[in-house]
Design a protein around this nucleic acid. Structure first.
Lengths: 190, 190, 190, 190
DNA sequence: CATGAATGAGGTTTCATTCAT
DNA sequence: TATGAATGAAACCTCATTCAT
C-alpha cells in the first residue's frame, strides 16, 4: 500500500465523478429529477451518500453537471465548414447525429424533455442551454437565409421543434415509433 | 337551523373541487408535479391542507383527476362526419383546436409534456390517455389511408409528433415562438 | 309533518344514542379504540359526524359511555341472597353469567381486554370499574371467608384472574377454544 | 480521516437499534401501540425521528421487531429433556420462568395483552407467535397425554389461559396482586 | 335534530445535507 | 478518499372537533 500518486488520485476522482454522473443521469431519466434521491444514486452506484457530496456541492449541482456534459456535445454537433455557405448536407448530418444520439443516449433526452417545462429547474443550466441552442439556432437561420427563404427564423424554429417532437415521441414508444421513416420525412422537409 | 340541502352541499363540493383542481393544475404546470406540495396548493387556493383530502384521496388521485378533466376535452376534438370519408378540413380543424387550446389552456400541456416521459406517473391515467389518443390516432391513420398514402401509420405518427413538438416549443417561449406561422406550415404538410 | 312531541324527540334521541354506542363498541372492539375514527363510526352507523357530537362531548366521552353501559351489567351479575351466607351456587351462577355474556356480547370483553393495560385510557372509567369490580371482589372474598379458606383474598384474586384468562383466550380463538369444558374446570375449583 | 471500520459501524448500529427497541417497548407498553408516536419514541430516546427510519422501515416494522425479540425468549422457555417423558418439574419450571420474566420484563407482557385482541396488528407477528406458542402448547398437551389425562387438549388450553389471566391481573396491580401465592395455586393444579 | 364542509394539530415518512471518523 | 450515522425541515396524510346552515 504505497501512497498513491497525485495522478492516481486524479484518476480515481475522475472515475468516481463519471460513475456518479452516469448513475444520476440514468435514474433522473427513469424516475424524474425530484423523485430520485441522493440515496438511490449512491446505492445504485455502490458508493456512499457522503462521497457524492465530496464531488458535488448539492443535488442541484449534480443535475447541472449532468446536463452540462450532454449539452456540450450539442455545441459541436452542427459542424459548418463555411459559415457563409452552409450546406444542406451539413444540416442533414446534424439531424442524423441528433437521431443517432437519441438512440444511443436516450437518457439525456428523457431528462431534458421532462425538465424543459419547469422554470425553476431549467434555470440551473439556462445559460449553457441558451448558448448551445442559440448557436445552433443561428446557424440554421443562416442556412435558410442563404437558401433565400422568406421566413428563415420561422423555418428554423419549425425545424428544431419538429425534431424535438419526433424525439419525444420516439422515447415514449421506442419499439413502435418509426424513427427511421420520420427521419427521412424531416430530411425531405429541409 | 335545518341542515343545508343536498343540493347546497353538492354546489359547495363542486365549487371547491374545481378550485382545488384549477389551483393544482396551475402549480403542477409551473413547477412540476413532484415539486408541488399539497401545502402550496392549499395556500394558493386559500384553504386548509385537510380540505384537499376531503375531496381527493391522495396527491396522486388529485393529479389523476386534473389530467382526466383535460383529457376528456381531447376525446371530442377531432370530429369526423363520415368515418369512411374523413376530410382534410376536419383534420385541420383539429389542429386548429389544438393550437387554440394550447394558447388558452397552456397549463395542461405543460403538465402533460413534463410528465410524459415518466412511466411511473403516467400509469395513473394511462387508460384514459390510451383511449383518447388511441382514437385520435386511428382517425388520422384512416384519413391518410383514404387519401391513398403509402405509409399512413408513419404519416400519422409524424403528424402528431410535430404538433407536439410545436406545442412544446411554443410553451418554452410563448412570446417569441411563431405559433401562427408554424401552424400554417403544418397545415400545408397535411 | 306535524311537529313531533317531546316524547317522540326523546325516543329519537335514545335510539340514536344506542345506535352510536353500539356501532362504536363494535368498531372499537374490532380495530381498537385509537384506530377507530369518529368518521368510521358515523359511516358505519349511517349518520353524520356532527350528530355524534350532538350526543357525546368527545371521543373519550363516547368510549366512557360505551364502557359504562356494559359495566353496569356487571354490578348486578353476582346476586347474593344473604350477604352473610353466600352460596356456592350463587358464585357459580355468576361465572355462568360471565361466560354467557362472553358468548353473546364478545365486543365488550374484547374492548376491555385491549384497553385494560393502558393506564391513560383506563382512567376514563376507572371509578366505575373500581366500584363494580370492587363490590364483586368483596363478595367473593366474603364467600371464601365464610367457607373458612385460609387466604380468601388470594383465592378471590385467583378466581377472577382465571375467569379473565379463559375469557381472553376464548376471544382469541372462538371456534377452537373449549369454553364449556374449561367452564366446568373452573366450577370444580371453586 | 479514514472512515470508521465496518465493525465500528456495526456496533453503533446495534446499540442504536437496541436503544430504539427498548424505548419503543417501554412506551408501547405504557400507552399502547397506536397512541405512541414515533416522535415520542425519538424524544424519549433522545434521538431524531429520522434516525428511527434509518433502522426500521416503518412503525409497524419496529413493533414487529420489538415483539419478535421477546417472543424468541419464549421459544426456549419450556425445556424438555425427553420428549416422550415430560416431567412435571419441567412444566413447573416453565411456569416459574414465565412468572419471573413477568416481573423482570413486564413491558412485553403488557404490550402482548393489549395487542392480543386486535387481529389487524397481530398479523404483523402472527407467524412467530404461532410457531412459539404452538410448540409450547404441543408440549403441554403431550405432558397431559403422558400423564393419562382424558382431555389433554382442554387441560393444556386451560393451563395457558389461567397463566395468562394471572399475568394480566398482576400487571394491572403489581403491588397488590399476590403473584407468589397464585403461582403456588397453579403449581398445585398441574 | 342533522349535515358535512372546514380547520389545524399532529401523525408517519422521506430526504438533502452534515459530520465524525 | 470514503463511510454511513445523524439531523431536521418538510413532505403526505389523518382525524377530532367546530360550525354555518
Amino acid at each position: 500500500m504505497s501512497p498513491r500518486t497525485k495522478q492516481q488520485f486524479k484518476k480515481i476522482r475522475n472515475e468516481k465523478i463519471e460513475l456518479i454522473k452516469n448513475t444520476a443521469l440514468k435514474l433522473f431519466a427513469e424516475n424524474g429529477y425530484a423523485s430520485t434521491s441522493i440515496s438511490k444514486i449512491a446505492n445504485n452506484a455502490k458508493i456512499s451518500k457522503g462521497l457524492i457530496y465530496n464531488y458535488f456541492e448539492s443535488k442541484e449541482a449534480l443535475l447541472h453537471d449532468v446536463m452540462f456534459d450532454s449539452l456540450k456535445d450539442f455545441a459541436n454537433a452542427l459542424v459548418v465548414e463555411d459559415i457563409n455557405n452552409i450546406k444542406k448536407k451539413e444540416i442533414i448530418q446534424f439531424i442524423d447525429w441528433s437521431f443517432n444520439t437519441l438512440k444511443s443516449n436516450p437518457e439525456f433526452y428523457k431528462l431534458y424533455f421532462s425538465l424543459a417545462q419547469q422554470g425553476q429547474i431549467i434555470k440551473l443550466f439556462e445559460e449553457e442551454m441558451h448558448k448551445v441552442f442559440g448557436e445552433l439556432f443561428e446557424k440554421i437561420i443562416m442556412y435558410y437565409t442563404q437558401k433565400g427563404e422568406k421566413n428563415p427564423f420561422t423555418k428554423a424554429r419549425f425545424l428544431i421543434a419538429i425534431v424535438d417532437g419526433i424525439g419525444a415521441h420516439y422515447l415514449l414508444d421506442m419499439e413502435g415509433f418509426p424513427l427511421e421513416e420520420t427521419r427521412k420525412m424531416i430530411t425531405e422537409l429541409i
